[in-house]
């Protein structure tokens, strides 16, 4: 068993030979061809790739500024909330809603409730000027029609 594991395979005992070959003088001009290829690859770079190459530093700079801004802005917003009015308003709203939810209608007189409703409606109706009303009614009428309407 041990011998089986450690015996060297037959093919490894054969001499190593390279069965591959290259075309004649293949390596002679390889440097020139590769340098030519590098030059060609540089020339045939697509315009978009070239634009990206040019914009890369600017984009990198913009990205780092944004990152720094976010890194600074976030802790500032966290520790020093700027919009205090908003928090005051929201606190007041919460208070109002809490109060509203505790309203007990059994303490309110029926008449005073009706009065309160109608008094609100009355205050909501805007007062209309007489001249404006007349101008509105007479629009689209000629002088004769207006005169006959007044006579009637």
């Amino acid at each position: 068993m041990y011998e089986e594991e450690n015996r060297q395979p037959e093919f490894l005992k054969r001499p190593k030979t390279n069965p591959f070959r290259t075309p004649d003088h293949y390596f002679d001009s390889l440097e020139d061809r590769i340098m030519g290829g590098i030059e060609h690859a540089g020339k045939t770079k697509s315009p978009s790739a070239r634009i990206i190459q040019l914009l890369k530093p600017a984009l990198g700079l913009a990205a780092s500024f944004t990152l720094v801004y976010l890194l600074v802005q976030y802790p500032i917003n966290q520790f020093f909330p700027k919009n205090t009015n908003q928090s005051v308003v929201s606190a007041a709203t919460t208070l109002y809603l809490n109060d509203d939810s505790t309203l007990n209608f059994s303490f309110i007189d029926e008449n005073s409730l009706v009065n309160a409703i109608f008094s609100d409606e009355a205050t909501n109706i805007p007062e209309i000027n007489q001249d404006e009303m007349l101008a509105y009614l007479s629009s689209g009428m000629n002088d004769l029609e207006i005169y006959s309407e007044i006579q009637n």
Partner: peptide, 14 residues
């Protein structure tokens, strides 16, 4: 491959 010069055994190994 036109540039393979090995014999049958070398082809088998490859």
């Amino acid at each position: 491959d036109a540039y393979f010069d090995g014999d049958a055994w070398q082809m088998l190994l490859q």
